[in-house]
Design a protein around this nucleic acid. Sequence first.
DNA 1: TCCGATTAGATCGTACACGATGTATATAGA
DNA 2: TCTATATACATCGTGTACGATCTAATCGGA
Lengths: 174, 174
Amino acid sequence: MKLNDGPQTGSRVTSRGNSKASQKPKPSAGERRLGDFLCFAIYSANLAFGRAYKKGLDELGLTYPQWIAIVALWEQDGQTVSELGQKMFLESNTLTPILKKLEQMGYLRRQRDPADERQVRISLTEAGRRLREKGMHMNLMASTGLKPDEFARLQQNVVALRDNLIKATAEKAK
Amino acid sequence: MKLNDGPQTGSRVTSRGNSKASQKPKPSAGERRLGDFLCFAIYSANLAFGRAYKKGLDELGLTYPQWIAIVALWEQDGQTVSELGQKMFLESNTLTPILKKLEQMGYLRRQRDPADERQVRISLTEAGRRLREKGMHMNLMASTGLKPDEFARLQQNVVALRDNLIKATAEKAK
DNA sequence: TCCGATTAGATCGTACACGATGTATATAGA
DNA sequence: TCTATATACATCGTGTACGATCTAATCGGA
């Protein structure tokens, strides 16, 4: 009977039907509904991708950002934290914990660059490279319901969108 | 001199140049690079959207998911948590804290449905609706660098992608 | 009508994102 | 050379995501 911190069941004024609160069902003229927001489409597609990848990533024992980091490091080894951050669009505050976790799992090494002790160079271990190979099969092409050319085109459109957003945001920041 | 928990500066074996670790610069034949992943394009575009919206949302004093919830509730008031969750692609474990925060800020009310005490009905307050109006101007169309028809087409493509992913994931779960 | 199963939310632990801040190292200018 | 500034990374607090689990309310079948 007691709702842990839930709203009190005492003051019961059903809020649909008897209050003016519910009188705005249709967005007037130019008002955009949630389904029309491109940002929401991207946001929810990102959630969907995360869920679609979940099973494969669980087999690897990785999270999605961890997997991205492995892929990015496999492409080029010995990157600094900020170089990796540029590829992943993340900064050290987010990246450092991810990299520490992966190091602790034995998939990479982090070592200060002797030439500039401020920088940390990151390199995959043998286990890290094996993991990358093991995850090579993960391919959701079929799940996207897209044909290869559609897939490539959408990918390019989204990349262009992202880069435009970044440029516009940087410019407005000035 | 002491790097809070950073990698030890003692064992210094620069990992580029003298170890085989760095000998894999180009992905062989069919190997996909990070830039070719549609999931990564979506992931990074989502981050970019979050950053692009940041300034406008700060003026409202909201986070992105909080804003989405306000928009969704403005479209239809008195929704249950799970109905709202279907629209936002989130479940109660994520939604409840967001809704509690918005309630605490005075933008909505949460009340158990007398007809079924398991359900919680959510309705915007007057302040919540004013906030929705205030945020009406936020429009990143220009920042996307897309013409209206391109914008609409991309939006539809991403929605279709999302829905395909959800369907495929649900089917494989069976 | 009674009790097992289901449903709706809430809670908890873990892991991102990210602004703000801290610390060590490097660089530049007087 | 000495110090002010800049740079690279790490830490911290807040707020999502999300699987697992919990509780209360409802439903269903014998």
